[in-house]
Design a protein around this nucleic acid. Structure first.
Length: 490
RNA sequence: CGGGGUGUAGCGUAGCCCGGUAUCGCGCCACAUUUGGGAUGUGGAGGUCGUAGGUUCGAAUCCUGCCACCCCGACCA
């Protein structure tokens, strides 16, 4: 492991790339745009999955699995959907290789597929094609299904976790008898995501709706949670779509309602991806490395023994073993690092880089005094603490760290959310103090587009429960009834 | 996909302009001394110079194609 990390102020983007690889979260694979998620990074994803999965089940959903391949023709059935994804699809055209006689393995041109298969960029089409066979009556509704899967989007420019050609995610796809019910579902799942972001990732998010420009291809309404990263850029952390009857119409999914009449089914879809790991990194980490919220940290507590001989080590290990047993009872994950191949200082730096929330060091001094040294990753504070009652203290400390990280991120967002009423101020803020900018907008796609071309800032969302306020559009001066949130985004 | 940059040992690099098979640091291995913030010494291993081709007696170096990554742009739940 190499020393030092480029600082955030020096080069934020380089800091991020180095951190991802040096903290052992992921690395570039030999396949363009695709990453290898390494065990430490994957264990964060597993934690996220297990929490979210429980949340989905607690809200009535079940998991299922649909094919990776989607017949090309399915995409043409929903016009705006195909427009949104056509330019980034991987397509399977053949099903066999052969030896060309010169020792080269080549595609067998005789094994051409009748119809090409698209590697799913999202599963609405294959799922709605399937739902057609599942739904006849209102008694078959709702269908509340989630899928954990990988998807492929042939992105032009990729970044580890934030945008990769293949990524892992979950996608919920639900079917309902009424529009009201589908909208309720859309909003419910947005709240699940917001809850997860705030209480597990310690990431404050703005709940909002996308403008028509930024909507998911095929949706009537896209709800989102937006988070602010430390460089002042926004990140879309999750979306929940009200799809109306678009997919039901495209795939002819009708049901008989209570009145005995045929109607198209109402749909939602919602998803979060491994991009959340990118959000986690960019929101909390510092120049020393990762800072992980205790709720999602694969290792919550690391114990490092400091010893001069075998005898001292075994005395320390006895204390450590006792602490480990107590912490495990409290469901706290602990690692005891008694490797003799690295010195304590090296281990300290390593666990800081990897974002372990709490470090306990036990040495000869502590043996004499009945103490340990406790260091918290979020503030870097170190203190000496008695061994008695240590488990309860650490449990509390983990809570404190979780809260502190959240509060810090919230303060950052508050400080970096500003109002602008004059276009010049708006532009100046974007360059000098990037962050969210609350500004009036005349509600037209043209104005939004113009601002985007001009400043690279987009409307991240129209916050839910937004305060009504009379004003004038920042660009055109036309009347507006509320402020919307602008930012440059990932 | 357009513009710019980079690619030399696991990582970071020198050498390239001006052609003669490769420099240094970290890391790695062995041993010893060490261990409360990234240890020290001694010895050692490790390289198709991204890749394919061309020019040449000879290519890391010159020329061409391709690939990957980084930055900017376009695109993008």
């Amino acid at each position: 492991m190499s020393k030092g990390l480029t600082s955030r102020s020096e080069d934020y983007s380089q800091w991020y790339n180095e951190l991802v690889t040096k903290a052992d979260l992921a690395e570039h694979s030999s396949v363009r745009g695709c990453m290898v998620i390494k065990p430490y990074g994957y264990s964060i994803w597993e934690k996220m999955q297990s929490v979210l999965d429980k949340m989905f089940k607690d809200t009535g959903h079940s998991n299922a699995y649909f094919p990776l391949f989607i017949p090309k023709s399915y995409f043409s059935k929903e016009a705006s959907h195909v427009d949104g994804f056509a330019t980034e699809c991987a397509v399977v055209t053949h099903y066999r290789l052969k030896n060309d006689g010169n020792g080269n393995i080549v595609v067998d041109e005789n094994a051409k597929l009748e119809e090409e298969l698209v590697v799913r960029p999202t599963s609405e089409t294959i799922i709605w094609n399937t739902y057609k066979g599942w739904i006849q009556s209102y008694r078959d509704l709702p269908i509340l299904v989630n899928q954990w899967a990988n998807v492929v989007r042939w992105e032009m420019r990729t970044r580890l976790f934030l945008r990769t050609a293949e990524f892992l995610w979950q996608e919920g796809h639900t079917a309902h008898a009424t529009a009201e019910e589908a909208v309720e579902e859309t909003e419910r799942m947005l709240e699940v995501y917001a809850d997860f972001a705030e209480n597990w990732m310690a990431l404050p998010v703005v709940r909002g709706k996308k403008t028509p420009n930024e909507r998911f291809a095929g949706a009537l309404d896209t709800y989102c949670i937006e988070a602010l990263m430390q460089d002042g850029k926004a990140l879309q952390a999750g979306t929940s779509h009200f799809l109306g009857q678009n997919f039901a119409k495209a795939f002819d999914v009708k049901f008989t309602n209570k009145e005995g009449k045929q109607d198209y089914v109402w749909a939602t879809s919602w998803g979060v991806s491994t991009r959340l790991i990118g959000a986690l990194i960019m929101a909390h980490s510092d120049d020393q490395g990762l800072v992980l919220p205790p709720q999602l940290a694969p290792i919550q507590v690391v114990i490092v023994p400091i010893y001069k001989n075998e005898e001292e080590l075994s005395a320390i290990s006895a204390i450590a073993d006792d602490l480990i047993a107590k912490l495990k009872k409290l469901n706290i994950s602990v690692k005891y690092d008694d490797r003799d191949t690295q010195r304590p200082g090296f281990k300290f730096a390593e666990y800081e880089l990897k974002g372990v929330p709490v470090r306990v060091a036990i040495g000869g001094r502590d043996l004499e005094n009945g103490t340990v040294e406790i260091a918290r990753r979020d503030t870097g504070e170190k203190q000496t603490s008695t061994q008695a009652g240590l488990d309860a203290y650490i449990e509390q400390l983990l809570n404190d760290i979780q809260n502190n990280i959240y509060q810090k991120a919230l303060n950052f967002r508050t400080e970096n959310t500003r109002k602008a009423d004059i276009y010049e101020d708006f532009k100046r803020l974007l360059d000098e103090n990037p962050g969210f900018i609350a500004a009036h907008w005349d509600g037209t796609p043209e104005t939004e587009q113009k601002i985007k071309e001009d400043t690279k800032a987009t409307i991240r969302c129209i916050p839910l429960n937004n305060q009504k306020e009379e004003g004038k559009c920042i660009l055109t001066g036309k009347p507006s009834t509320q402020r919307v949130l602008f930012a440059r985004a990932y």
